[in-house]
Design a protein around this nucleic acid. Structure first.
Lengths: 336, 336
DNA sequence: TTGTACGCGTTATCAT
DNA sequence: ATGATAACGCGTACAA
């Protein structure tokens, strides 16, 4: 038995409401506050979340929805970094975290989450172009922050990076080095980030007057698709490859090495993410740095802003990315 | 507005209690049940978790406590597999999952979890010899299932493998191949699994009349410590190395290759876990298979048994492990 | 500053 | 089989 508000009230000789006030910060005289606090210490009282939620409508719990196959959460650094950031930020603010992965269908997940009516707010990954789960959540009455966003989410709250611009920038870098047949290995097609990076790549190529026919290979962000993509692009006779993820770039490097193609002399290679390993490859990988942990933290903070101010406008946060130039594109020139 | 029990009652012309009965399976006539169900469909009603929890004392939510640094959750396959299994099993049973990692101190975590009084039960990893968090949770009034267990947890509910016996078995295998100076690279010292595997290794060696002085190198389950440990053991002149994890074995193999030591001719190598990559190393790795996903599933099932039967005895589940013999210990002999 | 009284949405007990 | 009605533990107008 942990006791209730009434127990504390009885123990300290005041009414229940007074105890409630010292907990929630109402105006209480210093003397009684002291007595109540003492009583709370003895009984080891702590408020019942269910009762408090029922009475106040706030639970202090936020739902985190990452509807991807659970193993992807661990394989794909984007998700693990993101998750890490969210967990940390929520814990710091004393919020509970309820997690939903892709163990159920999107429809089931949606129903359960909205049905519970327990959460103060939601953090949801939104990378699929067509996603009934995200649609349902965004249009629910719950304060929701998306990680990533589709065009239709323009009026929602979200945190994201500018994928298109980042891809354009890294492609520009390749072109500025004199590369003309720049290939691209995409991320998971149908995903917003993949499509936008592809768009950015295409735009840079077009602006430089370069064709992209046959220079795009579909990937899925994972290493094996990088190997396969490089194989394809090698046959297409590229002189540079921009991979939509570092992980794919690692795979591409392996393929190129197996084929005896020199990097960057024959073919320049660039990735996206700046994973820790990107600095350790041979040659070290040029890439676009993004901080996925920060993305998670910002998502949590945006949500808190929404929760603390009912009138708050939708929160939209675009985090910066940074081109990190290493030897996989500039050879030894760039260093020492 | 999602509506309340009263709304449904009004819409279907029955009392609130009757609606509650059709939801929770009381005895209701087929006719009224039908009307109520229809009304629920229209209003899109779904019960309020907080209210239900307050009234019944059951929330349908279980707390999952994996108090390790969040990045370890992703690096260490033991945890990711475990987590995966737990998430899947809970989702299947329609239970919500609230997750606690090491974002707060153990004391803070303990306080928050017990303070909430929202969970029906708890699943907690227990690998540290001295862990106030686990102690507090086990001694709380909440039904709790441990993953792993210390000696002092003998009377609690847990799922685990027999680490000591498994280590003994794999060491026996090495000895049976004629190896005499079998070294061991341990897991995280202070962890139950690491200590027990060490004990099992020592026991097998002792029984065979072999000394272990200078043949034990401390590791931490991760690859780098495997490299370092192999370095040490190489200098100690071993003819076999049993690593407490596959990940460390991968590191050890790299070190041995760098030193030009032939595996298994000069030095036999064995791991623990049977990760997917264990079959892909050169040579393929002999190892002890354990199914960490299954461990998570069993933990969830054990908890459900506890929840469904208040009188249930403590659940104790020891999952089997399996010695998988590959070329890293038997060379080409074992195959084709 | 403090206390009273009601409501939050359910479940559960007791009549009927 | 069904319907009142009392908890469940807390927040909060409102009154004092």
């Amino acid at each position: 038995m942990v006791g209730t508000l009434d127990d504390v009230a009885a123990a300290s000789g005041v009414s229940r409401s007074t105890v409630s006030r010292v907990i929630n910060g109402g105006s209480v005289s210093e003397a009684t506050r002291h007595r109540v606090l003492a009583a709370m210490g003895e009984t080891g009282y702590s408020p019942n979340l269910a009762a408090r939620t029922l009475a106040s409508g706030r639970s202090g719990v936020v739902g985190v929805v990452i509807h991807v196959p659970p193993d992807l959460l661990f394989q794909d650094v984007f998700f693990s970094g993101l998750f890490h950031g969210i967990a940390e930020a929520l814990a710091q603010r004393g919020a509970g975290m309820m997690l939903w992965l892709a163990n159920l269908s999107k429809e089931q997940t949606l129903e359960r989450i909205l049905g519970m009516r327990l959460f103060d707010g939601l953090i949801v990954t939104a990378d699929m172009l067509d996603d009934p789960l995200v649609d349902g959540l965004v249009h629910s009455s719950l304060p929701t922050v998306l990680v990533g966003h589709r065009h239709r989410d323009r009026s929602a709250s979200y945190v994201d990076i500018d994928n298109e611009r980042a891809a354009e920038q890294i492609t520009d870098h390749l072109i500025s080095l004199g590369r003309r047949r720049v290939g691209h290995i995409t991320g998971r097609r149908g995903g917003v980030s993949a499509e936008e990076r592809l768009t950015g790549y295409r735009r840079a190529m077009k602006r430089a007057g370069l064709a992209t026919d046959g220079l795009v290979a579909d990937g899925d962000y994972l290493a094996r698709s990088g190997e396969a993509g490089a194989e394809t692009l090698l046959a297409a006779g590229v002189d540079a490859i921009f991979c939509a993820s570092d992980t794919m770039a690692f795979g591409a490097l392996r393929t190129l090495e197996r084929h005896g193609a020199a990097v960057p002399d024959d073919i320049a290679v660039a990735g996206f993410d700046d994973l820790p390993q990107a600095a350790e490859t041979v040659p070290p990988l040029t890439t676009m740095r993004q901080d996925t942990g920060r993305l998670g933290i910002e998502a949590a903070h945006a949500l808190f802003r929404l929760l603390n101010d009912k009138e708050a406008a939708p929160q939209r946060v675009i985090l910066p990315t940074e081109l990190v130039i290493r030897q996989s594109t500039v050879g030894a020139l760039g260093s020492r």
